[in-house]
């Protein structure tokens, strides 16, 4: 078996609000292998978004280690984390998070440009991705000029721009109606397959989770189940 792309050991996260202490994650051990499609489920407040934030190096755990590709990212400096995010992780958010002042194409280009890539190849890749999500006609539109589904498709294109080995998605269809949601999901799965990405997806939608090869359920900051629906028990 290949070595895990993500390995968490004894990860806890607490927040001291001044008046009291809130334990959001209370000891998570988890390994995710390359190529897996993992759905993280749980009720609101179970800690799933926090877990995703930790996996992405957007936040640091109170205790424990998080290894991404064999490197512990739990205690890295912010700039180093930014580099890792830019190189290894693609993001899809529930509320798209496109930069409102950039056009669709510029939003897709941005991760590459931030990494110092801005040749012809880069532009071609961005256009190919926009084409792939069916938006080549709308590449000069600003986010406000796009529908929710279109914005999320732009966000998908942006997430794959630098061919990250790991894609993290936080309720990617949560803000969309079922038609648009299905379209985005299909695109996400197709791109994931074509680009050989590991996909970690946070959702509370059973149907969406049904596409995953592995479903992890959180409750009160603990993993309560870890199933592989396709594999016999």
């Amino acid at each position: 078996m290949s070595s895990p792309i993500l390995a968490l050991a004894g990860v806890t996260k607490s927040i001291d609000t001044g008046t009291h202490r809130v334990d959001i994650l209370r000891g998570i051990d988890l390994e995710i292998r390359p190529g897996e499609f993992v759905a993280i489920m749980g009720a609101s407040g179970s800690g799933k978004s926090t877990l995703l934030g930790l996996l992405a190096g957007l936040d640091s755990p109170t205790m424990g280690t998080i290894q991404l590709d064999g490197e512990d990212i739990a205690r890295l400096a912010e700039d180093r984390l930014a580099d890792i995010r830019g190189r290894k992780i693609g993001f899809v958010f529930q509320s798209y998070q496109l930069i409102p002042t950039l056009t669709a194409e510029e939003n897709v280009l941005l991760p590459a440009e931030l990494a110092g890539e801005n040749g012809r190849d880069t532009l071609d890749r961005a256009r190919a991705l926009l084409d792939r999500v069916g938006l080549s006609e709308r590449r000069d539109h600003y986010p406000v000029q796009l529908s929710g589904g279109e914005q999320q498709r732009v966000a998908l294109a942006r997430a794959f721009m630098r061919r990250p080995p790991l894609l993290l998605a936080d309720e990617p269809t949560g803000n969309l109606d079922s038609t648009n949601g299905r379209q985005v999901l299909e695109l996400l799965l197709n791109l994931n397959r074509d680009e050989h990405t590991t996909l970690v997806l946070v959702t509370h939608d059973r149907e969406l989770a049904g596409y995953a090869s592995r479903i992890i359920t959180l409750k009160d900051g603990l993993i309560v189940s870890d199933e592989r629906p396709g594999t016999p028990a």
């Binding site: 992405a56 957007l58 002042t101």
Partner: peptide, 16 residues
């Protein structure tokens, strides 16, 4: 602030 946070998410360093 949001734009800055997004940029950091997709790999921008503070200095950038």
């Amino acid at each position: 602030l949001d734009t800055i946070a997004i940029m950091k998410c997709i790999g921008a360093r503070s200095s950038q």
